[in-house]
Simulated assay, not measured.
Amino acid sequence: METRVKDHVRSVDASAVLRLLPRRPRLLALGEPTHGEETLLELRNELFRQLVDEGYRTIAIESDCLAGLAVDDHVTSGEGVLDEVVERGISHGWGASAANRELVRWMRAHNEGRPASEQVRFAGFDGPLEMSGAASPRQVLTALHGYLAARVDAGLLPCTRETLDRLLGTDGQWTEPAAMRDPARSVGQSDEAGRLRLIADDLAALLDEQEPQLIAAGPQEEWDRAALYARTATGLLRYHHWTADGSSARWARLAGVRDAMMARNLLALAGRGPVFVHAHNAHLQREKSSMRMGGEPLEWWSAGALVDARLGAEYAFVATALGTIRHRGVDEPAPDTFEGLLHALPEDRCLVDTRRLAAELGGARPAPRVSPWFGYAPLDPAHLEDADGVVFLKDMAPA
């Protein structure tokens, strides 16, 4: 089996990745099996720089879609100070990453003096969600309401701004950290939240109904941001609803709602032209995602699976696999695993044509790897053909 794997290995660069694919996809996704490793983010940066030469103009990462607007403003217009923009514009605590800072710095330098049509763009495609809870819907609802109130007849709006403020109440009740573990602490199924879901739906529908007029009034960028507010408002209120749910379906629905929000953002970004996407493998893979929460197994369809169902060959997914993360207790993989076979090769990193490899192997697959650290998810060798390729990195250096 080692010889068969070696026959399908090549060097890692953007042109090699694109040669694996039947056509250049609108969304080219690179997954990672763990978060917080600078080596992975440095590889992402390198591939994006190369993909810009291939016509890709947007990078979308697993970060808050609203916060990411500040980063996009910075790289396109120079607005804000680099360190402050990265800190507040990249969520989940990843603004402290040197590789993320370098990505934003390079994008701004690349765009300097270029016309808008040649500039590279930044986007977060995750919802405004953290492990500790979800954001208040105030920002997106008031921004969407304000955009429409300034452009359409007041009689078409489902409520006034005063009504919206009264129903929203205080932001603290929406961001209560205890709600993630105790559904009773969430306001997501209150009468006010129920009314806000209907209002958000009506505002989003009104935005669609008035699209010809709104786009004609321009600029397009303002309508695009209003559409982002609409997607986020409806998704965020749905997320809060399931945060307040006490049934056994709660965690699976929360995971599914989050990835559905991601998918809608990616589909919207695909309209810009070719987009390079980076997130955890579990958010980008085509097969069903799974994890254990409180000892119970959860399954949901990832953003990648949802996008793939819509775009088909216009979506491509390349996973990443690792050999060691010694500073996390992940030592050399067993030699009979997929990662073990690749770790035995002399290359420090390589790209594997998994579709051809899986076809050659048939039902004979490497053994699945089990990680001693919960933060690293090895590849499932049963699903090799569900990825368009795999990037393998032999060893992770500590940051």
Rank of each mutant, 00 (worst) to 15 (best):
L196T: 01
W300Q: 03
S290G: 09
L156E: 11
E192C: 06
L129G: 04
G304W: 12
A233L: 01
G194K: 02
M261S: 14
G89Y: 06
M262Y: 14
E209D: 15
V370A: 11
L379G: 00
R49H: 10
D126V: 03
E42I: 08
A282I: 15
R253K: 13
R23K: 14
P25E: 14
A270S: 13
V5F: 00
E112Y: 06
S136A: 06
A399E: 15
A377R: 14
D171N: 11
G294M: 12
L157H: 12
Q285V: 03
H280D: 15
A230I: 09
R10L: 08
A255N: 15
L203K: 07
R349G: 10
L322K: 01
M180N: 00
A255Q: 12
A377K: 14
P183Y: 01
E221W: 01
E37M: 07
G188R: 11
D153Y: 09
L82Y: 03
D64E: 06
L103Q: 05
R356A: 15
L40W: 05
K394F: 13
H241S: 08
Q173I: 12
R272K: 10
E118Q: 14
E162Q: 10
A367Q: 03
G323I: 00
L28S: 04
G78K: 00
L156M: 14
E38S: 09
D353F: 07
P346Q: 02
L322M: 00
E385F: 06
A255D: 15
L236P: 07
L82C: 02
P333W: 11
D224G: 01
Q173R: 15
M396G: 05
F374N: 12
E162P: 09
F48N: 11
W251F: 09
L345M: 01
R326P: 13
R349M: 10
W251Y: 15
E102P: 01
D53G: 05
A135Y: 10
V120S: 08
P366G: 00
D386A: 15
G89T: 02
G218S: 02
T324V: 07
L322F: 02
A359L: 13
A178C: 04
N265H: 12
S371Y: 07
L284P: 01
R10P: 03
A279D: 08
P128L: 08
M293Q: 14
R356C: 15
L21C: 10
R121A: 11
R57Y: 02
T243Y: 06
R121W: 14
L345G: 00
P128M: 07
V318P: 01
M131L: 12
R166S: 04
L47F: 09
L144H: 08
K394G: 09
A367I: 04
P158G: 08
G194R: 01
F48S: 09
C350I: 05
T160A: 08
C350L: 14
R105V: 05
E299L: 08
P346H: 04
R138L: 05
V120M: 03
G146C: 10
S91W: 00
A399V: 08
G127E: 11
D336H: 09
